[in-house]
Simulated assay, not measured.
Amino acid sequence: MKTTLKSLLTGGCLAALLSAGGMASAKDLTFAVGFPSGSTVVQSLEKFVAKVADNGGPGIKLYPLSLLDLKQTGPGLRDHIVDMGYVIMPYHPAEYANSNLGADLNMLSTVGDRIDAPGFAMTGALTEYIMLECPECVAEFARERQIYLGSISTHDYALLCTTPIRQVSDLAGKKLRVASANWGRWAEAMGATRVSISANETYEALSQGVVDCTVVHPADLLDLQLMDVTKYVTLGVPGGLFVGVGAANINIDAWRGLSEEERVAMLKAAAYNSAELSYNYYVRPMEALEKAREEGIEIIEAGPELTEATEAFVAEDTAVIADLFTENYGVENAAEKVAKVSALVEKWKGLTKDVKDVDTLAKLYEDEIFSRIDPTSYGMN
């Protein structure tokens, strides 16, 4: 992969940059994001870029879906093809094993003490875990030549399908595209088959019958144009949300090349970025579902048998997660890390349960997490 991406840099990167809307200035940081212009992610990252500038930070040039796709972004940052990127960690399970352990516990956010916006809590929990409670997480990003600047969370995950799903038996034999391992285990526990493909390939997979459903947040009806190939949406299962994202990761050399004042600006803007993206992923599904109804897509609420089976699965799966990360990736003290993340999820449910706006959420992330990061030492050794 490293050779391939280096070849991209020397052979095709210049053309990609030009086609994306012109070369960035010599002082601008380049930011690759594998979503199209107008998507929830790109709209939010445009605000992040403005916040960095307002705070006295470096200029940043976004390249939506034109330079590196979602799966290429992590290696592209490692090889310094771009300065910054939106990194999907579960695409690289071994490279980000400790961070993925925390992200894999996302279904805890939608069981037990339920809150209106579980994504707000999960963003806070995983960001605090990686940046402040997990030195192994920071180290694994450094090995990939990256600095992590916070996560984001989507809203509750649902089933976007070409066939109706109402109860457990409806899932028997169905092929479900899943974005990470915990939903894969859920699919298999419900009698379905997991299929792991890139988000960028989901449209074609649904349209050609390669998969029957995709496990995703309903915002992708709009963001990835899945409205055209979805006939049914089942809400309430599997729950959980996607949080395995480095929302504004930066190449380690680019980070170290910034002044202390610029790093302060980046950290402050990163707190807002985590809030802005998580908030948009809270409201965007409502817009998408309303549009889906207008388009004649049937919206189904999962029946009690299916929701109860899902609750039981989540209760049993935390021990499975600890064992799998120990056996497959050599994560040390996995059970203790699971307990730490679980406690952080509960802490952040309490902190965010009454939050209703971006600015309040951003201040909360800044006060509780980003203000505790030392810009003179974080990522500098």
Rank of each mutant, 00 (worst) to 15 (best):
A16G: 08
Q43P: 00
S39W: 11
V52C: 04
P64H: 09
D79T: 12
V41P: 00
L14S: 12
L70M: 11
A50Y: 06
G76Q: 08
D69K: 07
L29E: 03
L70D: 12
A32I: 08
Q43D: 14
D28K: 13
L18Q: 14
V49H: 03
M23E: 06
T40Q: 11
P58D: 07
F31Q: 01
G56H: 09
A15V: 07
A15M: 11
V82P: 00
A20T: 12
V33M: 10
K71Q: 12
G57C: 04
S19V: 06
F48I: 02
S37Q: 12
T40W: 12
A16P: 03
Y63E: 01
S37E: 15
T40R: 06
A50C: 00
L70Y: 02
D79S: 13
L14W: 07
M84S: 09
K61P: 04
L62W: 08
A24S: 08
G21A: 04
S66N: 11
V52Q: 05
S25W: 00
C13H: 14
L14P: 05
A15W: 09
A32C: 08
K61A: 06
P36L: 13
S66A: 13
I60D: 15
A32R: 10
G34S: 14
A53V: 01
T30Y: 01
K27C: 02
D54P: 02
G57N: 03
S39A: 11
L70A: 11
L29T: 06
H80M: 09
D54H: 12
S44G: 11
A15G: 10
P36N: 14
F31C: 04
G74S: 10
D54I: 07
G22K: 13
V82I: 10
A53W: 05
S25A: 14
F35Y: 11
K27S: 14
P75T: 09
A32Q: 02
H80R: 07
D28T: 06
P64F: 13
K51W: 03
L14Y: 10
N55C: 08
G56Q: 12
A24P: 14
A15N: 15
Q43G: 13
G57D: 02
S37L: 13
N55Q: 06
H80N: 14
F48D: 00
T73E: 03
G38V: 14
V41Y: 05
A32S: 02
S44T: 14
F31P: 03
G56I: 03
L68R: 10
A24T: 02
L68C: 01
S19F: 15
P36Y: 11
V49Q: 00
F35I: 01
L77G: 02
D54E: 14
F48S: 08
H80E: 10
F35N: 09
H80D: 15
I60M: 04
P36H: 13
P64I: 15
D83A: 08
Q72V: 09
G21E: 05
G21Y: 06
V42Y: 03
S66K: 06
S39P: 00
I81V: 14
A15L: 13
G74W: 03
D83W: 10
D79C: 13
G76E: 09
D28R: 09
T73V: 15
V49M: 02
G59A: 07
L45I: 15
G56N: 05
M23R: 04
L70P: 01
S39D: 08
L68W: 07
M84Q: 03
K47W: 05
V82Q: 00
G21I: 11
L45S: 09
T40I: 07
L67Y: 02
G22V: 05
V49P: 02
G59Y: 01
L18V: 15
